[in-house]
């Protein structure tokens, strides 16, 4: 007598083998496990139909973690048609997040970065046992980690290229004592760049900051972001604290000069904007 779905033994999922930093083997969310179990018995058309559901609240929606599992499974069982469609669906879902992370790179470099992110992502998805575990547990964190890491490498290359073309006049010379005094006053007085300023919505504030940062070069721009937007100290009495001076391996005065340069450029930018 043929087996009905209810009498079929429950198929055991490919176990995760990697361990998290607490030493526990990674565990898929129960909703992901349910989605996988309910999908792996379906014919190709059934899996594809479910994967095409884009409304997260809809019955049958498949999370990205589930798609990763099903893509691996389709490769193991050589279901190329299913794999092709699932891969495209996953790529479309990733596009916005990846584009966001690399949006500041010029288009050629951004294309290179995009390709590298995809290579790393699919190496993991199709990798040996354990390679895809984290993608099946926290897909968006795993993708973000890859994208930021690739951005870091590309941006480093861009900075090196720029450094080869230009020599920065603000690396060591012109150190002054009054670097720090006016900076905070000017920022506080600025209607454009006060973190948490209530007259701007967070979206407006972010757009305004991005606009302003266009006028700054490196390393001034990153030092500005870290100091004024992320709260990094120029120097610290705590020897364990990572500071701007320690990270860039320059004196606190040099950092002060970079920030002074940023202040000066932003003053001009504000003037242009207020006209």
């Amino acid at each position: 007598m043929p087996e009905t779905p209810s009498t079929l033994p429950q198929r055991i999922l490919e176990p995760l083998t990697r361990r998290n930093l607490n030493g526990d083997v990674y565990k898929r969310e129960s909703v992901v496990e349910s989605q996988i179990i309910s999908s792996i018995g379906l014919p190709d058309e059934g899996v594809i139909a479910r994967a095409k559901i884009s409304d997260k609240e809809a019955v049958g929606f498949l999370q990205e973690e589930t798609l990763v599992y099903l893509i691996r499974e389709s490769a193991q069982n050589q279901r190329q048609l299913v794999a092709d469609i699932l891969l495209e669906i996953l790529l479309v879902r990733c596009q916005r997040q990846v584009d966001y992370r690399i949006r500041s790179l010029d288009s050629d470099l951004a294309n290179e970065a995009y390709a590298e992110i995809m290579r790393k992502l699919f190496e993991k998805i199709f990798g040996a046992e354990g390679q895809s575990d984290y993608l099946q547990v926290r897909f968006w964190n795993a993708l973000d980690r890859i994208a930021i890491d690739v951005f870091r490498q590309c941006n480093h290359r861009r900075e090196q290229d720029e450094a080869n073309l230009l020599s920065s006049p603000y690396t060591a010379g012109e150190e002054t004592e009054e670097v720090k005094d006016e900076w905070e006053q000017i920022l506080i007085g600025s209607e454009h760049l006060i973190p948490g300023e209530s007259r701007w919505s967070s979206v407006e504030r972010k757009a305004l900051i991005e606009d302003a940062l266009q006028v700054l070069g490196e390393p001034t721009r990153t030092a500005f972001i870290l100091h004024y937007l992320e709260g990094w100290q120029i120097e610290s009495k705590d020897p364990d604290e990572m500071t701007l001076s320690k990270y860039y391996q320059v004196t606190p005065k040099t950092i002060g000069n970079w920030l002074r340069k940023a202040k000066s450029d932003l003053k001009i930018w504000r003037g242009d904007h207020n006209e």
Binding site: F122, I209, E210, L229
Partner: peptide, 30 residues
């Protein structure tokens, strides 16, 4: 630092013109 840069660095003024081009690159790699 790279994470902060991706949050705050301004968008490039000459973004990718064809939105499907990257998708195609991604599919080829996949």
């Amino acid at each position: 630092i790279a994470w902060s840069q991706t949050e705050y660095f301004p968008e490039n003024k000459n973004p990718q013109k064809d939105p499907n081009a990257r998708l195609q690159i991604g599919m080829n790699i996949a």
